[in-house]
Amino acid sequence: MSGERAPAPGGLALVEELVNTLSVDTGDDRLAAQFGLSGPALAEAVELREALRAALLAHAGHQAPAGALDTLNGLLATAPLTVRVDAEGTAALVAGGGLADRIAAALAEGIAAGTWPRLKACAAEDCQWAYYDRSPAARGRWCTMSVCGARAKMRTYRSRS
């Protein structure tokens, strides 16, 4: 939905990109083409994407669907992550080559930076687009105020009439 927001910082941009391969309102799914996946790898990536969406909905104050976070934890549990130090002494987290491995590294980076809780999914049921909440209090609910937020406020207004 949203093209108005800047991408999430650092590795969280990969998480945002993965979740946003599916347009919930139209059903358009670009996961296979965007990440070059097929077969079992594609099936696992779909499972990973939807489990991440559940976590992002939880960040926005919604209850995650039953089992979704267990699925996410299971997929990430197998991700090999290594800390590597370069010649300048800078430490970096290095992931294996799989998508779940790269996502695990991105989440670890976001957790360390304190940015992971600001990656959310839009509260609109027909949207659920991933976005990075840059609001001062981190209380954003919609991917865009001008579209999803305005619709929600209009529905609330009409329900009072």
Rank of each mutant, 00 (worst) to 15 (best):
E88K: 06
L72T: 07
T21Y: 06
N20Q: 00
Q63G: 13
S135C: 08
R139C: 07
V46M: 01
P65D: 11
R134E: 12
G89H: 14
S161M: 14
P40D: 10
S38L: 07
E125L: 10
A51I: 09
S2R: 12
D70W: 12
F35Y: 10
C122P: 02
G149M: 08
G149I: 09
V147P: 01
G97I: 07
K120C: 06
T90E: 13
R160N: 00
A92C: 07
A13L: 10
A91M: 14
R5C: 06
D101A: 15
T90A: 13
A124V: 01
A66I: 11
R141T: 00
L52Q: 05
A100Y: 09
L75T: 08
L22W: 03
A77C: 06
V94P: 09
P9F: 00
P136C: 01
S38C: 06
P40E: 10
A105V: 03
V46R: 14
D29F: 04
R155P: 04
M154G: 02
H62I: 05
G61P: 04
L12A: 08
A150N: 15
M154N: 07
V46F: 03
V46T: 04
A6R: 15
I103F: 00
R134S: 11
S23C: 11
L31G: 04
G98V: 00
S23I: 05
R134T: 12
A55M: 11
D29T: 05
L99D: 07
R160G: 05
E16R: 08
T78R: 15
E109A: 15
R155N: 08
I111T: 14
C148S: 01
G96I: 11
G11D: 01
R158I: 03
R160H: 06
L14D: 13
A150V: 12
L76E: 06
T26C: 00
Y131K: 09
A130N: 02
G140Q: 08
L99G: 07
S38Q: 14
T71L: 12
P136S: 11
M145T: 14
A137E: 13
S2N: 13
T82A: 15
P9I: 01
Q34P: 00
R155A: 09
A54N: 01
G114M: 06
A32P: 00
A91K: 14
D86L: 00
V24G: 01
R158F: 05
S135N: 11
A54S: 10
L99K: 07
R139L: 11
E125F: 05
Y157S: 08
C122L: 03
A138K: 09
S146C: 11
E17Q: 15
T90I: 11
D101H: 12
L56I: 04
A106V: 13
G149L: 09
G96N: 10
R53Q: 04
P65Q: 10
F35D: 02
D133M: 01
A45E: 12
A45R: 12
L18V: 09
R158V: 00
A104T: 01
R141Q: 08
R155F: 03
L18K: 03
T26R: 01
T21C: 14
R158D: 03
D25K: 09
M154L: 13
L18Y: 01
R139G: 04
R49L: 02
G67V: 10
V15M: 07
G11T: 03
F35K: 06
